[in-house]
Every structure is written in C-alpha cells, then in structure tokens.
Design a binder for these strands. Structure first.
Lengths: 240, 240
DNA sequence: ACTGATTTGTGCGTATGTATC
DNA sequence: TGATACATACGCACAAATCAG
C-alpha cells in the first residue's frame, strides 16, 4: 500500500464500480481484459484481479474463464411493507408475465404452517406453487398455503387471474395486509434449481410471509424462493 | 401409495418434524439410524431417506455420512424494525460475546455507500469489520461504514465497548433509527467462509442497513453477512 | 497403522399408481 | 382403450465415511 489505509485494489475496485454505475460499461457488456486493466492502472495483473474478485463477490460482474468478464444487471429491489403484493411490486417492470401455477394440492397443515395461519395442526389446506417470470427469466418460486374451508377454489381462480390479489378479491377478500416477513438463505434444492434456472448448490433467498385480512385473520402463508443474485429485499422504515 | 394425495414419505417427514418440535429429539441430539426409522414406520429405507432429505432441506436436521443425523437448533430470529440494534437483539441469548473488531481502515466513499450515507463520493469514511460470536459459534460478520469527519474515533471506541450503540453514545449519538434494510443472498467468499466457519460455497444472508440519527442524518451503513442456516430475519408489521 | 462395526450414500432392478396424450 | 412418461415405494447390494479397539 502507498498510504496506510488506502488499498490499491480497493481503489481500483471503486473506480471500476463507479464506471459501471456511470454506464461506461453497460449491463451485459464486457469489461476490458485483465492485462489491459493492469496497464491502465499501472499495477500488476494480480492487483486488478483482486479488485475484480471483489466486484464479482459483490455481484457486480461475472467472470467466466476463457470468455471474459461481464457486467451484471443491478439487483431488482423488492420493497416490503404492510401492503406488499408481488404483482404490484413488479408489474411496472417490462416483460412481466402473470403468475404460472405449477401444481396444486391439498394437504393437512404441517405444524409450522398451522402456527402461522393460526389453525389447528392437520386442518385442511389448499396449496399451490407459483412461478414468476420476468423477461423469460424465472425470478421467484412461491408456495402459497390457504385454509381450504374458506378458499377452496383459490387455485382455479389464480389460474384465471394470474394474481393472488385478484383471486382473493373474487373470494371476497378485497384487501389484505402483510403481517410478518421472515427471510433466510439456503442452498437451492434440485427442483428449485431447475425452475429458477440456477445450478444445484446456488444460494436462494427464502421469504416467508403471512398475510391477514382486514380483521387480522391470517388468510395466506407464502414461502417464496428466489435466485440469490437476482433480487434484493428492501424494507424501508416509515419516515417521521 | 395407500390413499391418493397422502404420500408416505411426507407423512413421515411431518411425524418426525413434530417430534422434533415437541422435544422428543432435542436440538443437537441424534436421530435414530435410518434402518430403525424404517422399521418403526414399516417402510423401506429409501422411503424414510426421502423424508429425511426433506427435513434436511428445511434445515431441521443435518446428515453426516458415517456419523449420523443430528437435530439442528431452530434458527435464531432477528427482528428488524425502526430500533433494530444487534446487541439488544441478541444480548438476551446466553453465550453472547461482545463484538470483535477484525480490522479497520479508512476509505474514500464508494458510490453505493456514499448514496446510502448521503455524502459525496470520495468523502472520507471510517470502516471496520466486526465479528459476532454466540456460544463460540460465529453468527455474523459486519462491515460498518461511518463518515470519518464526525466519527473519526469510532473504531477505537468500538474496541473498548464491543458495541456500536455504546460507541456511538460516546460520540454524542444517544439514539439512532434504522431507516432502511436490504437483504439478499449469495455464496460465501473464502474470507467469509473462514470467519463464519462455513464452507466455501455456502449461502450467506447479506443484510445492508442504513442507520440515521434523530435528525434523520445518516450516520452508519452496515453490510452484515451471516451463515445462511443460522439466522432468520423477521420483519413484523405493526398491528392495528 | 490396521480391522471391524456402524452409519450414511449410491446404484440396480422391479412393481405399481398417476398423468398425459 | 392403449401407449408412454413419470413419481412413488420396495428389496438387495455395495461404496464411503467415521469411530472404537
């Protein structure tokens, strides 16, 4: 290091990062090859490689042996609040397709789902898997659980509407609120990987949500898995 | 299958899951070996294996070849709200150690951090990495960024206090609020893997946060990485 | 350093039920 | 109705990892 506290590779990382942000290297485009970058910054190739590795770790670029380095599209922001709805969140994005039902089934409520829905264990539930696609890219795979007694036909309505919100409206739930959101990360299962078009051990973001009707009665529990690199969940605290 | 719609391995999964929840198999303890479970449920070993694989995917158990199957501790809930503080969130847990400073440095504000802190790019920042440990298990690795002008000595104070909240208090910030929380998932880097004691490609949960002082001025940006399986971020909407 | 016992991981073959066309 | 594909479940055998002696 020249001066203590300023690492050369960090400066290069920041220089490239802001050039990407500024559009010098547009999303999907190629970065100059390592040797050219090393020449430009007047450092050894190993030094730029450290900066490039940091950019890759941050998800800003992807590095492919033998092909080159490519600028990745910035993550899509998924804001979460009391009135979170998937369709409203992303419908302004171009290339949004309606939700596709992969399969649906009835099941006795497992303990964890029963607790979230505030029903007794074993209560009959309707469940279905819902794949969301934007620009032919799968972005999320969600399992929805509903109490079967109140929402017996929800899966059919979802097929017609392509939206949980609209399907619920047809069953008399004009409005609903997000009560709880849990987030964790784990490796994709094989089935998830095939639907989300990521490889087997890729990290997925798991978002569990509980939605309640205006009376506060839980109506839906959703388990949504999205490919780690494509989404970013944002929770903004209300400003004063 | 006996009855349509009821899969044997799913029933076994649910039976074991509720036994784990009920404490029949306590956290950290061993599950019976596969052959015993197969005998008990009167099915083939492959069938219990499918149930066990599902439990592993859900993070309920860990399976180790040659050793056995072990019940995992339930994920620690990390509630997020306006007044989120790491130390307060987890200090009630037994075995909590104060934050350990791994390294600290000064840096010119990268574009993304500058935007979050609402300072010009290149503004001088103080940054440090902070490792949190509970029961000798590393749970999170956080990089904190502060404007250097206002918080020049924050790293030293953190070393003394072991808590960002206390360090800020010594610099005149008696209170602060969480304005924004972003969450995404990616694979661990080698450095993260070594600190968090997980393997190289394991999924990590990345939580980026912006904290502001009571006047609404950003004072800190934190990038926190935690091993995917150990935490669960929970955002609860305020009830009516 | 070796052996054997225990336990999970993997592969093969077979049968049956479900879904689709 | 038949053909085909796929998922579920069973039985057997062996490989690989771990641990105790």
């Amino acid at each position: 290091m020249r001066r203590p506290g300023t690492l050369i590779w960090r400066e290069i990382e920041e220089a490239l990062s802001s050039e990407i942000a500024a559009g010098v290297y547009p999303a999907g485009g190629r970065l100059p090859v390592e040797t050219d970058l090393a020449d430009r910054f007047g450092v050894n190739r190993h030094t730029v490689r450290q900066a490039l590795a940091a950019l890759q770790e941050r998800g800003a670029i992807s590095i492919e042996q033998g092909r080159g380095m490519f600028v990745k599209a910035p993550k899509l922001a998924y804001p979460i609040g009391r009135r979170t709805r998937f369709t409203e969140n992303v419908s302004h994005l171009p290339g949004t397709a309606p939700g596709r039902l992969l399969r649906h089934w009835r099941t006795a409520a497992p303990a964890a789902i029963a607790r979230d829905l505030r029903v007794r264990r074993g209560t009959s539930l309707v469940a279905f898997d819902d794949l969301r696609v934007i620009d032919d890219e799968p972005v999320s795979l969600t399992t929805h659980y509903f109490p079967a007694e109140r929402f017996a036909t929800i899966a059919d309505l979802f097929v017609q509407c392509g939206s949980v919100t609209k399907a619920l409206a047809q069953l008399g739930v004009a409005d609903y609120l997000r009560r709880l959101t849990r987030v964790h990360a784990r490796a994709a299962t094989l089935e998830e990987a095939s639907h989300l078009k990521c490889d087997g051990a890729a990290p997925v973001l798991v978002v569990e949500s509980i939605n309640v009707d205006p009376q506060g009665v839980p109506i839906e529990v959703g388990h949504s898995r999205s490919a780690g690199g494509r989404w970013e969940i944002v929770f903004e605290s209300p400003q004063d």
